[in-house]
Design a protein around this nucleic acid. Structure first.
Lengths: 339, 339
DNA sequence: ATGAAAGCGCTAACAC
DNA sequence: GTGTTAGCGCTTTCAT
C-alpha cells in the first residue's frame, strides 16, 4: 500500500553523509555544521521523514508512554481522572495507553502484560480496588520493573506509590453534615462491597453515627449491585423495600446518587424535604441536577496531576513519598438543605 | 533501580540454544522439539522474561496500537465512544493510545505526529470536526502512511474512512416530533458553530421547519459558547434574554440539554408543560434526569465497533466502504410529552 | 565536524 | 529441529 517510510539511512545516503550525522542533527543539532544541518533538514522535509520511535526507544530504553488503567471511562469520575492525567502526561511529553478494565481482574492482568511488553515507562491504576482477592500479584510483579502509581487505593511495595483522597474524612464530613442538619435516620448506599473506598467509607459512616450516639441499623446499609446510576436506582429500591424509615442518605458516589434521587422522586419522596441526599466525588453534574446534589469533592485535578508527577519523578530518580493523602471537602447544595 | 530485563539472548545462553530457537518457541512452538520447548519455557519463567514489543514491532512493522483522538473525555458521549472503541480494540488485540484534543487543533497536530512516530497502526478521530479551517492537512498527510477513520465527520481521501450517524435525519426526527406534539415556536441550541454535526443539524432544523410552514426566527437559534452543560446553560440564558417566545427546544447534544433544563427550571418554566425539550446523543443520563430527557440516539456501540473494524479491515487489506451512514432513532421521554 | 561500527531485542531466510 | 546471519531504524562510543 504505502511505500516504505524514509529512514535515517535514506536521508544519509541522499545527503551524502553518515547515519550518525543525521542522528546528530535530530538530537544534538549544535554538533553538526549549519550547512549539513540545513541540507539534511530539507531532505527530511522532502522525504516526509519522521523518526521511528520504536527504534529510538529500543536504544534509549524509554518510550515516554504511561499505561493508565481505569474501571469504566463512562463514569464521569473516571473520565475526569483520565482527562486530568492525559493533560498532565501530554504536558510532560508522555503518551497514554488506556486500559478499561471494567473491574475485571483477568482483563487487567492481560492488559498489564501487554503494556509491559510494549515497554511503558510506568503504570497508573486509577480508582479503588478490591481489598480481598489476590489482586496485587501482577501489580507487585510489574512494580519490579517499572514504577506503579495507585490512585485511591493503599498498597505497599518497593516501587509502588499511592495518592489518595482521605475518604474516611470525607465520609465523616458527609454523615456529620446530615446529622447536623437534623437527620437522624441515615442510610448508606455502598459501592462495590469490597472495594477499598467503599470499605473505608462504610467504616467511617458507622463510626460517625456512633460518635453521635446514633445506633446503626443494618437495614439502612445497602450494597449497590453496580456503582453507577442503575446500581444506585436498584439499591434505593431495595432500601425502600426493607421498610425502615430514613430521612437522610449518604451515597458512595455521585452516579449512584443520581439513580437514588431518581428512585426517590418516583416513589414520591421530596428531596430534601423528606430525604436529604449527599453524594461523593463532586462530579460536574452535581451542580446541574435538580435539585443540585451535595457531594464530597476529591480534588480530582490534584489527584491526577500527582499521579503523573509521581511516575515522572520516580523515573527521574527523585525521592518521593510512598503515600500521599489529600483532604476532601464537602460541597453543600440543594439536596441536603435543612428542612 | 531494576536490573536489566532478560532478553531472548539470556534465555538462549541459559538454555544452550540459539536465539532463533527461543524466538521460535515464542512464535511457532510446533517447530521446536517439546523438550527444548519446555526447558526454554521454564527458563523464561525463572527469568521473568517478557518479549520486548518494540523490537518485535521494529521487524514486524506493526505495533497493534491504534491512536484515538477525542475532543473531551469528560463528555459522556465521547467517554462512551472511547469505552466502545477500547472494548473492540482489546478484543481484536489492539491497544489504544488516547489523545484528548480539547478541540485544539495545534494539540491534535502535535499528537498525531507523536503517534505516527510511535508507529500506531491506524488512527481514529472521534466526533465532528470543524468544517472551515485548514483542519484536514495533517489528517491527509497521516493517511498517506496509515489508515485513518473518522467518526461523525465526512472527509474524502485516499486512505480515509468515515462512519457517521445521519444527523440530518436525526435532527429532522427531533424537530418533527416537537411539531407533531403541538410545538410551533421551536428554538435550536447549536453546538460549536462550525463543527460538522452542528452545521448538519442546524440545516436540517431549518429545513424541517420550512417543510412544516413554520417560519425560521433567527432569535430562536443560539450558538452555545461550549458544548457542555455550562454552555447549554449560558445559551439558554441568552435565548431567554432575546425575549422571543418559544415552547420547544431542540438541543444539539444531551450535555447542553442538561444545562438548558437547569436554566429553564431556574427561570420558572415547567418541562414539558411550558417548554418541550429534545436533546441529542441519548447518553445514559437522559433516562435518569427529572424529567427524563427525550433524545436522538446515535448507536454509539455500532459507531465505535465499526471504527475499529474499519482500521482492522484496511490493515488486513480487505475492501471496505469509504463512508457509512447509520440511522439514528428518536427516544421519546418525559421532557417532550405533549401538554 | 564527521564516519565506522557495535549494539538495542527480536525475526526470518537460509543452511545443515 | 536447530544454528548462522542479516536486518528492522536508531544511538553512541571511538576514531579521525
Amino acid at each position: 500500500m504505502s511505500k516504505k517510510n524514509a529512514s535515517i539511512y535514506d536521508i544519509a545516503k541522499e545527503a551524502g553523509v553518515s547515519t550518525a550525522t543525521v542522528s546528530r542533527t535530530i538530537n544534538t543539532p549544535d554538533k553538526v555544521s549549519s550547512e549539513t544541518r540545513t541540507k539534511i533538514h530539507s531532505i527530511m522535509e522532502r522525504l516526509n521523514y519522521s523518526p521511528n520511535a520504536l527504534a529510538q526507544s529500543l536504544v534509549s530504553r524509554s518510550t515516554r508512554t504511561i499505561g493508565v488503567f481505569i474501571a469504566t471511562v463512562n463514569n464521569p469520575y473516571y473520565a475526569e481522572m483520565v482527562h486530568v492525567i492525559e493533560k498532565h502526561a501530554f504536558h510532560n511529553n508522555y503518551s497514554i495507553l488506556l486500559g478499561n478494565t471494567g473491574n475485571w481482574i483477568e482483563k487487567e492482568e492481560k492488559y498489564v502484560e501487554i503494556f509491559v511488553k510494549k515497554q511503558v515507562d510506568g503504570i497508573i491504576f486509577v480508582g479503588g480496588r478490591n481489598v480481598t482477592d489476590p489482586h496485587s500479584h501482577h501489580i507487585m510483579k510489574t512494580s519490579e520493573r517499572i514504577p506503579v502509581v495507585l490512585t485511591n487505593h493503599a498498597l505497599v511495595g518497593k516501587n509502588i506509590y499511592c495518592v489518595l483522597s482521605d475518604e474516611a474524612e470525607g465520609a465523616c464530613m458527609a454523615v456529620q453534615h446530615l446529622i447536623d442538619t437534623g437527620r437522624d435516620r441515615i442510610a448508606y448506599i455502598n459501592g462495590f462491597n469490597f472495594s477499598y473506598p467503599s470499605v473505608v467509607k462504610k467504616d467511617s459512616y458507622i463510626k460517625t453515627l456512633s460518635r453521635n450516639q446514633i445506633s446503626v441499623n443494618e437495614d439502612l446499609i445497602v450494597n449497590a449491585p453496580k456503582d453507577n446510576m442503575e446500581g444506585g436506582y436498584a439499591a434505593c429500591e431495595a432500601l425502600l423495600e426493607k421498610g425502615s424509615e430514613f430521612n437522610g442518605i449518604f451515597v458512595a458516589n455521585d452516579m449512584m446518587a443520581v439513580g437514588v434521587m431518581k428512585k426517590l422522586t418516583e416513589a414520591g419522596y421530596a428531596i430534601p424535604g423528606d430525604v436529604s441526599v449527599v453524594g461523593y466525588d463532586d462530579i460536574q453534574l452535581c451542580h446541574y441536577l435538580t435539585p443540585s446534589l451535595s457531594s464530597v469533592t476529591q480534588n480530582i485535578s490534584k489527584l491526577g496531576s500527582m499521579a503523573v508527577q509521581l511516575v515522572n519523578d520516580v523515573l527521574e530518580g527523585k525521592e518521593v513519598g510512598k503515600i500521599t493523602y489529600l483532604h476532601p471537602e464537602l460541597k453543600i447544595r440543594e439536596s441536603s438543605l435543612p428542612h
